[in-house]
Write a protein that binds this DNA or RNA. Structure first.
Lengths: 245, 245
DNA sequence: CGCTCGCTTGAAAAATATCAAAATCTGTGG
DNA sequence: CCACAGATTTTGATATTTTTCAAGCGAGCG
């Protein structure tokens, strides 16, 4: 995705603004940080790289650093009895590691693809936060976006049929690409099927059947496993709104 | 619940701190706002009252105000095709109305019981935010708590058995009472069954049967519909951790 | 070439949704 | 205090749907 060159002028936080009405036709995420703020954060940040599948931190670890994704996709999950549930997928411009509880991370994060990120010591970030109201507001805006996404996830999980959950997920991914300024003709799914199943709260076979059903009904098409096209938007939306719950 | 007298010294925001390790045995929520901040917010706040069942605001309404609960319980929900999904229950010390998208509320809020709250114009709040880093940090802490709760909700919704979801919900409510300093011997459920069902993402009959099953197995007991006691904590926890997903 | 890993497919069992009717609770007025 | 009307909750029987468990396929790799 991110074509070639990496922007190294400092951390970058992207979000859709919660309070400012979208003035352009297309509501886009925009960079929240000013050059001054990026420079300030760059001073305490180091670049770190993770390979696909690598754990970035574990839940219950001491929360010592905050991360900001430059490129790649990160999976946020929580260990269950004998499996794990995926809480969200994070993309460039996203922030993670802030969401601890009493000094300990509450989630496990793992690189879903190769990842490049800025790593900032939590203490240094907190020092900046107590004095810089601008950065605080940016963070508030970003946290609001995270909350909105978590709520959309809850709405998705309240759906009872697997196909409905899948359709909502695909719609969410497409929306994500749209507000990031990427083309939406094809939906990008960098993560593997088992992660999607864990995000949707269904078993892998059930997800597989839902995909196959959508394909056989020509509602979607998929070249390889990581790219999906919507062929029949009407039927697609009908599935999304199907039934109650 | 809130015994008689209402604290009117200004808005109050309670939260468990994300970054400070819990030093006491019991991790409690504490008041984030200083007297100065409460007084500052009190200047822009008015007291509003809602009766049980009353809608406070609707999704897609222009987001013009932020609310802070003094007493009572608020239901946050989102309209679905022909029903609505409950995203969270809010209690005294909680904040809502901040979570809009491009100037419009994304959720509908409704009084689950009689509610007293502070109402603050969004513009005035934003004016304070851009200049007061202390208040900003408080808000960040509170938003982190909201995110943690939303994620716990997602974990709950990823469970496949209704009884497991119910047990996790009861556990969550008890935890909530614990960190609020209320007695935990009895779990308080001020909202009605249909709201709980909508929060758990199951139908009303399914929830009813789950309750009945727990009672018949003497895992819980309930005097009236709004009070539950856990009789067999071991069996209770086993249900919470049952199966995968 | 044979390996593993990720995904797909198949058949049976379990659980919940659905629809409809009975029972209970709540608040109101006699 | 009791009876009643409406809303809320419980119960019942059936149909769907998904989970489960197991086996089969396919691409990528040593």
């Amino acid at each position: 995705m991110q074509s070639g060159k990496i922007d190294i002028s400092g951390p970058a936080i992207h979000a859709v603004h919660p309070w400012v009405p979208g003035n352009s036709e297309k509501s886009m995420r925009h960079q929240l940080l000013s050059d001054r703020e990026r420079a300030q954060l760059a001073k305490i940040a180091t670049i770190v790289r993770f390979e696909k599948g690598q754990v970035i931190y574990n839940e219950t670890d001491d929360a010592s650093a905050v991360f900001n994704i430059v490129s790649g996709v990160v999976t946020v999950c929580r260990a269950q009895e004998d499996t794990e549930h995926v809480l969200s997928f994070l993309y460039p411009g996203d922030l993670f590691g802030l969401l601890s509880e009493e000094g300990r991370y509450v989630n496990t994060t793992r690189a879903a693809t190769a990842v490049v990120a800025y790593k900032m010591p939590l203490l240094a970030v907190r020092r900046i936060l107590v004095s810089d109201a601008d950065l605080d507001v940016d963070l508030i805006i970003k946290l609001c976006e995270g909350l909105r996404e978590a709520q959309r996830h809850a709405v998705l999980l309240s759906k009872k049929r697997v196909a409905t959950r899948l359709v909502l997920f695909l719609d969410l991914q497409q929306h994500l690409q749209a507000v990031s300024g990427e083309p939406t003709s094809e939906i990008d799914l960098p993560m593997d099927r088992s992660s999607i199943a864990a995000y949707l709260g269904v078993t892998l076979p059930a997800l597989s059947r839902a995909f196959r059903m959508l394909i056989s009904k020509k509602i979607i098409a998929s070249q390889d496993r990581h790219h999906v096209k919507i062929l029949n938007r009407k039927a697609f939306n009908e599935l999304a709104n199907q039934h109650i719950g």
